[in-house]
C-alpha cells in the first residue's frame, strides 16, 4: 500500500440540527486524483473545508500529508493548496502581486517571491496579464490565477473545489491539462465536481456523496459497472425480421425491446455472457444485422441514479441497491 496523503475516518459534521457529513471515510494515495462527485449541498465543500483545516469536524479524524488536521493544522496548511469556488485571489491587486503576496506569507524573501510568481505566471500563461488587476481577468484566467496561487508553496496535496464550474470548454480543457501535469509530477489531488466528464477524465477513483453520505465509491469503470446497466444495441438489416429476432432473443433468456422504426433492438446486458447469447440466438434464427454493440452506461447515468432524490437517499442506508433495481425496472 502506498502512502496515504489524505486519510479521513468517519468524518461527521453537524451545523445545528443539520447533518452536513455523516460518517465519511476517504483515503487518497499519494500522487493520485480522488474525484468527489455530488450535487449542490451534498457535503463536498464541507469535506474540503475540514481537510484544509478551515472547519473542524464534529467527530472523526483526518490526516492530510501525514498530519492530523485538528492537532497539526499549521503543518497541514504548509503542505496544501486550496482552489475553488470559496477560495479566491484578491481582485483589487495585480495577478503578480497576488502570487508574490502568498509567497511572502509562506516565508519567501521578496526576491524569491518575485521569482516564484513570475515562474508561475509563465506556466499558467499569464505573463502578459501579470501586471493587471485580477478583476480585469476573464473567467478562465481567473481560475488559472487561483490555481497558480494555491501552487506557490509547492503543496503535496491540492484541493480543487469545482475548479471549472462556469468555464467555457477551452478554458476547462487547459485547466484539466494543468491538473494532469501536476499529478504526473507527484501532487495528490482532491477534486470536487458536478461534472461527470471531469471526474471521468481526471480522477483515478471517484467517491459519490449524497446528503452527506458516501453512496458509491470506486474507479469510474467500477461505478459504471456496478450501477449502470450495459445495453446490447443492434440494428437489423431487414426491418421485416423484427419479430423473428425478438422471439430468438427472448428464447435466449434476454429482455429485448425494439424502437418504433422496427430496425433497432436493445436489450439490457446483465451478465457478461449476454452478448454472446444474443449473437448465437440471432445466428441460429438467420437474422442479419448491420450493427451490433454494447453501450456502456455513462457516468451521468450513475450520477443521476445516485442523486435522483437526495431526501430519500439520506434515509436510505443502501441507496445503491435501490437504484440498481430502479434502473433495471426502467
Amino acid at each position: 500500500m502506498t502512502e496515504l496523503m489524505i486519510d479521513a475516518v468517519r468524518i461527521t459534521k453537524k451545523f445545528g440540527k443539520m447533518t452536513a457529513l455523516d460518517g465519511v471515510d476517504l483515503s487518497v494515495p499519494k500522487g493520485t486524483v480522488m474525484g468527489l462527485l455530488g450535487h449542490n449541498g451534498a457535503g463536498k465543500t464541507t469535506l474540503v473545508n475540514i481537510l484544509s483545516t478551515l472547519t473542524t469536524a464534529t467527530s472523526g479524524t483526518a490526516r492530510v500529508a501525514g498530519y492530523d488536521v485538528l492537532t497539526h493544522g499549521h503543518d497541514v496548511r504548509g503542505r496544501i493548496g486550496l482552489t475553488g469556488q470559496f477560495a479566491s485571489v484578491d481582485e483589487q491587486i495585480t495577478g503578480l502581486d497576488n502570487l508574490v503576496l502568498i509567497a511572502r506569507l509562506l516565508g519567501a524573501s521578496p526576491k524569491q517571491a518575485r521569482r516564484r510568481a513570475e515562474e508561475l505566471l509563465t506556466v499558467f500563461d499569464l505573463t502578459a496579464a501579470g501586471g493587471r488587476k485580477a478583476q480585469t481577468y476573464s473567467g478562465g484566467m481567473r481560475r488559472r490565477l487561483d490555481l497558480a496561487a494555491s501552487l506557490v508553496g509547492h503543496p503535496d496535496v491540492i484541493f480543487l473545489d469545482e475548479p471549472t464550474t462556469g468555464l467555457d470548454p477551452s478554458s476547462r480543457n487547459s485547466l484539466w491539462e494543468i491538473v494532469e501535469r501536476l499529478v504526473r509530477e507527484g501532487t495528490t489531488v482532491l477534486l470536487t465536481t458536478q461534472y461527470l466528464e471531469e471526474a471521468d477524465r481526471l480522477a483515478d477513483r471517484i467517491t459519490v456523496l449524497a446528503s452527506g453520505r458516501i453512496v458509491a465509491a470506486g474507479t469510474a469503470d467500477q461505478l459504471k459497472g456496478d450501477i449502470g446497466t450495459r445495453t446490447i444495441m443492434l440494428t437489423l438489416a431487414h426491418p421485416g425480421d423484427v419479430t423473428v429476432a425478438m422471439d430468438a432473443l427472448k428464447r435466449a433468456g434476454l429482455h429485448p425491446s425494439h424502437d418504433v422504426t422496427r430496425r433497432k433492438i436493445s436489450s439490457p446486458a446483465v451478465a457478461s455472457t449476454d452478448l454472446i447469447l444474443a449473437v448465437r440466438a440471432l445466428d441460429r434464427a438467420g437474422v442479419m444485422v448491420t450493427e451490433l454493440g454494447i453501450s456502456e452506461p455513462s457516468l451521468d447515468d450513475v450520477y443521476l441514479a445516485l442523486n435522483h432524490d437526495p431526501k430519500t437517499d439520506a434515509d436510505n442506508a443502501n441507496a445503491v441497491t435501490q437504484i440498481i433495481k430502479a434502473i433495471s425496472a426502467a
Binding site: 501552487l151 509547492h154 503535496d156
Partner: peptide
Amino acid sequence: SSSLAPATQGATWRGS
C-alpha cells in the same frame, strides 16, 4: 525541481 512539483521533490519555505 519542476515549477509544479510538490515540495517533497523541491525546495520549500518554512513559514513567515
